[in-house]
């Protein structure tokens, strides 16, 4: 149910993004007398205070602690997984140089890591309560979170090729997945309790924060008249798990680079 309504929202956003420029063009036409085509176009460009774009790209990054905790001894592998994003932006230019960028992005932030850990705190959920232990071995973590994100940024036009943007984003979790497995090692329920060589799966999907916000800094390069390449670094400032969640012994944040193409109307 939730998913369907989200798709509808995106469809609406895209539809608005497509239809608004037509209105703008019509309005521009009404207010101006007949002129040659080139002049007409240039005038339109200059008077364009709203700039619309649709974007498609992917996220590469990590849901990671800020500075790895000492319990993580080695990262054996890191996979960004296929984390796509689609959305649209509208920039309102207030001066020829400065504007405000508002967007809507449906995106996945995901990754897969395999780390060697030592005395790493794990909590295993059983019948609704946690069994706490420490694990020495390998921990595989799989993150795949779908968000609906709204970036709000100040936009600065460096020249006709470059836009820089800086601001913040808010994200709403649509579907969260955070699970993994501790393996190739042993667990103890306490440092003084005996070793148990065992694998231990865990799943904290249900505990992920429904809301995420952070900084969003980006740049856009207009490669062709309608096509630009963009990159946005989204740096989460709210941990992905709530404050009272202790099953992961450190706070983790979404830090992802969103790279892709934009079609500018």
């Amino acid at each position: 149910m939730k998913k369907i309504s989200i798709y509808r929202l995106i469809a609406t956003a895209v539809a608005i993004a497509f239809t608004l420029p037509t209105f703008a063009t019509n309005m521009a036409r009404e207010n101006q007398p007949e002129k040659p085509l080139v002049e007409k176009y240039n005038a339109y460009k200059a008077s364009k205070v709203y700039e619309f774009s649709v974007k498609a790209g992917f996220n590469i990054g990590g849901t990671s602690p800020m500075g790895l905790p000492a319990e993580i001894r080695q990262i054996n592998s890191f996979g960004p997984t296929l984390s796509l994003s689609i959305g649209g932006d509208v920039i309102r230019w207030f001066t020829p140089k400065w504007g405000v960028n508002l967007g809507l992005r449906f995106e996945t932030k995901g990754m897969e890591t395999d780390a060697t850990v030592k005395n790493y705190t794990i909590k295993l959920l059983n019948d609704g309560s946690y069994i706490e232990g420490i694990y020495t071995g390998d921990v595989v973590t799989k993150v795949n979170n779908q968000y609906l994100s709204i970036p709000i940024q100040a936009a600065y036009k460096v020249n006709h090729r470059w836009n820089l943007k800086a601001g913040a984003y808010v994200s709403f979790l649509l579907r969260g997945n955070f699970d993994g497995e501790a393996k190739n090692g042993y667990m103890r329920t306490h440092p003084t309790e005996p070793k148990l060589e065992t694998d231990a799966p865990y799943d904290f999907s249900a505990d992920i924060n429904r809301f995420d916000c952070g900084l969003d800094v980006g740049a856009e390069f207009v490669a062709y008249k309608h096509l630009s390449i963009y990159g946005d670094l989204t740096w989460g400032l709210t941990p992905i798990f709530p404050g009272d969640f202790t099953a992961v012994g450190f706070k983790m944040y979404n830090v992802y680079l969103n790279i892709g193409f934009a079609y500018v109307f």
Binding site: G61, M66, L68, I72, R73, L233, W235, V255
Partner: peptide
């Protein structure tokens, strides 16, 4: 953000 590094044991 690749600067996260392994701490001393």
């Amino acid at each position: 953000f690749m600067t996260s590094c392994i701490k001393d044991e």
